[in-house]
């Protein structure tokens, strides 16, 4: 397979197969809101329903609970913005310092960072809940935001990038020119590190946006829910996925699919944007070895 992927035709065939594998479920999800619940189960899975049906699905969703879905969207946006802002401000200097400075506990810090990346999230949820309740933060956005500002993945990615792609000679040269350490970080490292900054920002946003268990446990007030936990509330209150039909609300599989599409749209748009930024960053920051 590898050798085949080396040639132009082989490579493009490889890409086509990849697109089919990854694209098919997504296409199904995009088509689902255009169909009625009945059509979804009994008609061709990859058929397009109708725009009128899509309009009905849309109305059913946005009128649910007085349009609470927009409130969930707003919550997701501001929780994510604050979380990622703080996470970056802490992670970038830490990753840079661990790659380029030699100091006490550097090895310990690296080890703990990697170790805590391996600790199962599920194992930390209950202790985290007790900690947040000690600070009286349960049922406030901070119970979700604060734990997620600890971002070992961002620190590691910055560390790897600084180690592999930012030559120590450049930093040494700036130092000889009399630039302070913070100045070097800000004016030399940050511009060079643009690809990795875009990358960890992107993964930070995705991780926070998609976080499910933490908001699920910490926030019991419907009005504080994020899009992810809101979607769960939507499903739970209507049994739209498990197939039961006890609810009189017009929320079924197509409405849930539409809510899913709404919740993934910002991530997909951001990916398109980040991809351009990554390529732009690579063109500018061509590092001489």
């Amino acid at each position: 397979m590898l050798r085949l992927a080396g040639g132009k035709i082989g490579r493009n065939l490889f890409f086509v197969a990849t697109i089919v594998f990854f694209g098919l479920p997504v296409l199904w999800l995009l088509l689902a809101p255009t169909k009625s619940n009945y059509a979804l189960s009994y008609e061709n899975p990859m058929s397009f329903g109708s725009l009128a049906q899509f309009g009905d699905t849309w109305n059913n969703l946005v009128t649910y609970n007085d349009g609470i879905i927009w409130r969930w969207a707003l919550n997701s946006i501001w929780y994510t913005a604050v979380t990622v802002g703080v996470a970056l401000a802490a992670s970038l200097p830490a990753g840079y310092a661990m790659a380029k400075f030699r100091f006490r506990f550097r090895g310990t810090l690296l080890f703990l960072t990697l170790l805590l990346m391996l600790v199962p999230q599920a194992a930390l949820i209950l202790p985290m809940y007790l900690e947040m309740s000690t600070f009286h933060l349960i049922n406030t956005p901070w119970a979700v935001i604060l734990p997620l500002t600890f971002y070992p993945f961002g620190v590691y990615m910055t560390y790897l990038y600084a180690k592999a792609s930012v030559p120590s000679e450049i930093i040494e040269a700036a130092r000889i020119d009399g630039c302070g350490e913070f100045g070097i970080f800000r004016r030399v490292f940050l511009p060079l590190a643009r690809p990795v900054i875009v990358m960890i920002t992107f993964f930070g946003v995705v991780g926070t946006w998609n976080a499910f268990f933490l908001p699920f446990i910490m926030l019991t007030d419907d009005k504080l829910a994020t899009l992810q936990t809101g979607l769960q509330l939507l499903v739970a209150s209507t049994s739209a996925v498990s197939g039961g039909n006890q609810s009189t609300l017009p929320i079924h599989a197509p409405e849930v699919a539409l809510a899913s599409v709404i919740s993934i749209t910002p991530i997909v748009l951001m990916f398109l944007f980040a991809q351009k930024q990554l390529i732009a960053g690579q063109a500018q920051g061509a590092v001489k070895g």
Binding site: V206, L231, S260, S263, F271
Partner: peptide
């Protein structure tokens, strides 16, 4: 396209 399914999580 490889990335898009990664955005679909939880109930979705």
């Amino acid at each position: 396209l490889t990335y898009v399914p990664g955005a679909i999580t939880g109930s979705a």
